[in-house]
């Protein structure tokens, strides 16, 4: 059990660290979102696995039900985090693009072309 906890905690820390570094290393908000969302979600997921492994070990050793409760609540927290982080990143990316922030060093931007076409069409109708 100790080995599993140690491995999960170390993987989690490594990815959390990469997520924090990506905020400083990438050039614009979209690439930062990549690093911040994926790496921190994965890292936090692994911290939860570590907690689950620890609680499972204690549950087997002591047989107290509260460790089972800890496992269930950790699983719910992991699911909530998985859904909310991805959706939050999506909302931030959309807001950034609508506020006129273009991706740095982009080779192609279909959304900007699309927005221009839509603006022209709506302008023509008015």
């Amino acid at each position: 059990m100790f080995i599993f906890v140690a491995i999960f905690v170390l993987i989690g820390l490594a990815f959390n660290l990469l997520g924090a570094i990506s905020l400083y290393r990438f050039p614009d908000v979209y690439t930062r979102l990549h690093g911040a969302t994926k790496c921190t979600t994965f890292g936090t997921l692994f911290s939860m696995f570590a907690v689950v492994a620890y609680a499972l070990g204690r549950l087997v050793m002591t047989g107290e039900a509260r460790f089972g409760v800890l496992i269930i609540h950790s699983a719910i927290a992991a699911f909530v985090l998985l859904v909310t982080n991805a959706t939050g990143a999506h909302a931030l990316a959309r807001a950034a693009h609508r506020s006129g922030l273009m991706p740095a060093r982009a080779v192609v931007d279909r959304l900007e072309e699309f927005d221009e076409v839509r603006a022209k069409r709506e302008g023509a109708q008015v």
């Binding site: 911040a36 979600t41 911290s47 985090l81």
Partner: peptide
């Protein structure tokens, strides 16, 4: 801020 929130959740779990 979003990243910080995720870290705080991780911290609370541990």
């Amino acid at each position: 801020l979003d990243t910080m929130n995720t870290f705080v959740i991780s911290l609370m779990m541990m």
